[in-house]
Nucleic acid binder design. Structure first.
Lengths: 213, 213
DNA sequence: TAACCGCAGATTGTTCAACAACTCTTGTGT
DNA sequence: ACACAAGAGTTGTTGAACAATCTGCGGTTA
């Protein structure tokens, strides 16, 4: 007996808002008026506020009391903090992970997805696949909690991506690196793969900070 | 001009519920009926639901759709996961932290608080001080995000504490270890302190798992 | 002119009442 | 004993209302 996963109005509103932010339709800093969103989303103000609450907890929205909720915009310091945490989580997960084919499969499919999207020139899809790749790295640790936190990190980072003027420069360089890291891990040298990943992340941080508006 | 931090009804309800859970007045597994809580908390159902949302995101409550919200009860697997993450976060933060007196001060005050509470026989306060000690360890990393996550971990762990039959056995052994770890860190040997901390945590995990109801 | 003040107008925070959708229990029939 | 339908109770969602707070505009004063 499989649970049917009925969405529910609030969950649907959360999903729509999250997608709108990730797709760049809601730029960081945008103010989300309660009354003017009840129409398009077809939900009541109370339900909308509940949706806001969960997105605020996820860090995608920010509430300024009595002024409204805004799409979060990451400061350089916050981005640096995210990368500090990423280095910690991802390198630990990768270096301590035993090398076994089933676990490597998740990495490989993410790498392939990124390659296909890059060939098609769809840089937003490349970004999505890249983030999925890093989520798979953390998944090597086998901790549901770390998985959840990592998803939150990637979601917030995408807010910085959509604000960037040059998506190709942001995602192009890392497709090959993903491949190299995965190959090294598949070859059994997890520690060397973790070292490559650390350099990767420091480079990525510079690129992202350099692409801020 | 300092912001006055007006609580707001929702935030006040969150605070009351959280305290009630940490103090053991709401045992894990308890069902929280919406209608029967609007009275004591003096808030409307909608506001109460907003409070539930934040506590659910914090992991202290669990929602079963159309059935209600329940005080979270940690399974042994979840506790093991929490400790896996704690080892990762705390040991990393401690080993990579430079030794300087202002940072050590936070640790030392938490240790002293625990010692005083232990002398007074107030084991719940000892547990609180212990958790504060570990939050201070993570604070050595200087990452607001890790601080936030660590607070969440300690809050959830307290749910396991209140369900334990013997609080003294749960907290007594670790006061001295806190002191030893802090002294080692103050002496400049952060790596050795991190090793001690790892053993500490593995011991603590066994104690907590052994004290499950 | 420029700075300050106060007053509408709009928006958020919170409450209340109602109804739909769903779950659990109870009682009935076979 | 088992299946099933009716009922009661709870959650999910909506809409309207009011208080508290912020914003922007216009007027006053130096």
């Amino acid at each position: 007996m499989t649970t049917v996963e009925k969405p529910g109005s609030a969950a649907r509103a959360v999903e729509q808002l999250r997608n709108a932010m990730i797709n760049g339709e809601l730029a960081p800093g945008t103010r989300l008026s309660e009354t003017s969103l009840t129409g398009p989303l077809k939900v009541s103000r109370n339900t909308l506020r509940e949706a806001f609450s969960t997105l605020i907890e996820e860090g995608l929205l920010v509430r300024q009391p009595h002024r409204g909720v805004f799409v979060a915009s990451l400061s350089p310091a916050q981005i640096a903090d995210i990368y500090r945490v990423r280095v910690l989580l991802e390198c630990s997960a990768l270096s301590q992970a035993p090398t076994d084919p089933p676990r490597a499969a998740g990495l490989r499919t993410a790498v392939d997805d990124a390659g296909r999207a890059a060939s098609a020139g769809d840089w937003r899809a490349v970004g999505t696949a890249n983030m999925h790749f890093h989520e798979q790295i953390v998944a090597l640790a086998g901790s549901p909690r770390l998985d959840s936190w990592m998803r939150q990190l990637t979601a917030e980072l995408r807010l910085a991506f959509v604000a960037a003027p040059d998506p190709e420069a942001l995602h192009r360089p890392f497709v090959a690196m993903n491949d190299a890291i995965t190959s090294t891990y598949e070859a059994g040298d997890a520690n060397r793969a973790a070292d490559m990943l650390r350099d990767y992340l420091l480079t990525s941080e510079r690129v992202v900070l350099g692409n801020l508006p």
